[in-house]
Nucleic acid binder design. Structure first.
Lengths: 337, 337
DNA sequence: TAAGCATGTGGTACCGGTTACATATAAAAT
DNA sequence: ATTTTATATGTAACCGGTACCACATGCTTA
């Protein structure tokens, strides 16, 4: 591989001029430019990114730290992040934290040593102290679904509370009268907000009781167990709003095993809008987050922050949308009217 | 951040000694070692990975080039790759090629400039010339499901032909008598091999005709269309073996829309073993590839190759396993006997 | 006793870029 | 006519490591 010095020699100018030409920093005469172009062409020169990184402390690399890429929520997000990153000339390093603080911190250490330009966190373990420390060290951070108390970084999230209300309203409009909720682990803000949204939407209703809320684990298995518990406790439930799609799938499975008709006897609604919801039988109604857009946005924000064109840190709350499908379709609903 | 020179100064030795200590190359006196340890501790010194990369042309970074992380086959693979990579101290860069040669080549260019240590290809566009060129430039490559004619790199794949036969045999044993096949795009070797396996397994049967093979696109939509075409052509089909799980899901959807009972009238079997197969209704029988193991293996091989402990390039053919589930469960099958 | 070798350490060129600073020329401003 | 100013280019230090080579010491071996 040719180096910048080779090019300088062949073009008959100094390395500084080549560098200036390459980075469009400083003056370069048009004729000199031509000579340089030719030399570069002739030598098939490509500037070395690592050397650049060392000299300029900029590597055009960002990291995406998420709990687990196998979790169906994240592939689409990752895809979006990578799409816009590559569009802006950045490369993406993938890290699976399993939501374990230790792993996260160890990744952060490695990434710092690699002069990574910025980090996207889609994780719940991170505490605001970490974020602050990162920012202090000059590493831009953008978070997903996490609001560090002291707003030390930008955040992208979606309207969980509103989404939960949408779900409940939809179920009510479909004629459901006893709507239960399977909520996710309360250390996840998303789970908490959705639970709050649900409560706000149903607490004024006559039948309301805290026993209609059961804990799940944001996974299929937890959805199954929660549904079993729920149906035992309240055999008269006619709708289940699950805190995420995986648990809704679990609910579907559990109800099917029990011989309960969906949506006939019990309607089911999920949250997230992952692809899976389209392949269940019946297809699953869900409150869809704009997953790809969230990834694209978070990536764009990070890059802006890296390149210094971001005015101030901000929280972006994206709209969610109810996607009505078969699992909540009740002929006696008001929606049809 | 402290540098190696700071440490050297504080410890009262030369940078060379520090470097030797850090890399355990060459001699370092035990007492000197203690002094160095103290200095490193005191300064909270961490060697700079970029500088190391520049000096040693080794970055402890590998790249994973795959068509699309959103495709449900890949997240688990990516997870496995990252797991073992991080276990060995490597970091993973994620690249989505969309199976487009241009994108792949452009990624390769970028990665070379970054002194990446090796590449894992899970892509079908790459031709053997590319692989050879990489290897010539000293960048280790390992491929997934791709056999470059000239064995210039290691390959990890699974037994597609055998898997297809397993599927057909299973369907036959469940009492199916007219088994159709939806095959994937023939530029994918996997698709081709599965088709061959199917043909070999059914061609000697009385009912066999090429019209039982329909083309799909390896996606849900293609599975739906192929199934529609198929059922119109052969209303007497009693089993569909799809070339991958996504198309099998499509088949399930299409059959459900047509009011055809699965597995009652038509049994459905997929291929791959992605998570989706467990959430369909009925749950989908599939020929499971050991996806995680494939990712782990391919990653381990690459790292061995990078570290020079791999004797020779080799092709690893992993076993597949039939996972019988509800979608092929027929009471009149022999399996129960 | 001299050569040979394992141990231990330092000096410094090198990896391949960036960039501050010095320098030079021609045109514009005073 | 002199000072500015914009244009243009080169020199060399620097980023933070690695590693080759030189050199010193103490002990074994011929």
């Amino acid at each position: 591989m040719a180096t910048i010095r080779d090019v300088a020699k062949l073009a008959g100018v100094s390395v500084a001029t080549i560098s200036r030409y390459l980075n469009k920093s400083g003056y370069v005469n048009v004729e000199t430019e031509q000579k340089i172009k030719k030399a570069i062409e002739a030598l098939n020169y490509e500037p070395n990114a690592v050397a650049r990184g060392l000299a300029g402390k900029k590597t055009n690399t960002i990291a995406l730290i998420l709990p687990d890429i196998s979790n169906p929520f994240f592939p689409e997000l990752a895809r979006a992040v990578e799409d816009v990153a590559s569009m802006y000339g950045y490369t993406v390093i993938l890290c699976n934290s399993d939501d374990e603080g230790v792993k996260e911190k160890s990744y952060i250490e490695v990434l710092k040593k690699k002069y990574i330009d910025g980090i996207i966190f889609a994780s719940n373990t991170l505490d605001s102290a970490d974020v602050e420390q990162m920012t202090k060290k000059g590493i831009p951070v953008v978070c997903l679904d996490r609001v560090p108390p002291k707003q030390s970084c930008s955040v992208v999230r979606s309207k969980n509370r509103e989404g939960a209300k949408l779900a409940v309203e939809h179920l009510l409009s479909m004629g459901c009268r006893k709507i239960a909720h399977i909520y996710g682990p309360q250390e996840f803000i998303t789970a908490k907000e959705r639970l709050v949204g649900y409560e706000e939407a149903v607490k004024h209703l006559a039948w309301y009781s805290p026993t209609f809320m059961v804990q799940g684990d944001f996974r299929i298995e937890g959805g199954i167990r929660a549904t079993e518990l729920l149906m035992e406790r309240h055999p008269d439930v006619d709708a289940i709003f699950a805190g995420n799609d995986l648990m809704a799938v679990g609910a579907l499975k559990a109800l099917h095993r029990m011989g309960v008709q969906v949506p006939g006897q019990v309607a089911v609604c999920g949250f997230d809008g992952i692809g899976m919801t389209e392949i269940t039988q019946p297809e699953l109604t869900t409150v869809a987050q704009p997953i790809y857009e969230m990834g694209a946005l978070v990536s764009r924000i990070l890059i802006k922050k890296i390149e210094g064109t971001l005015e101030a840190d901000q929280t972006y709350e994206l709209d969610v949308a109810l996607v009505p499908r078969e699992s909540t379709l009740r002929r006696n609903g008001h929606e049809s009217s």
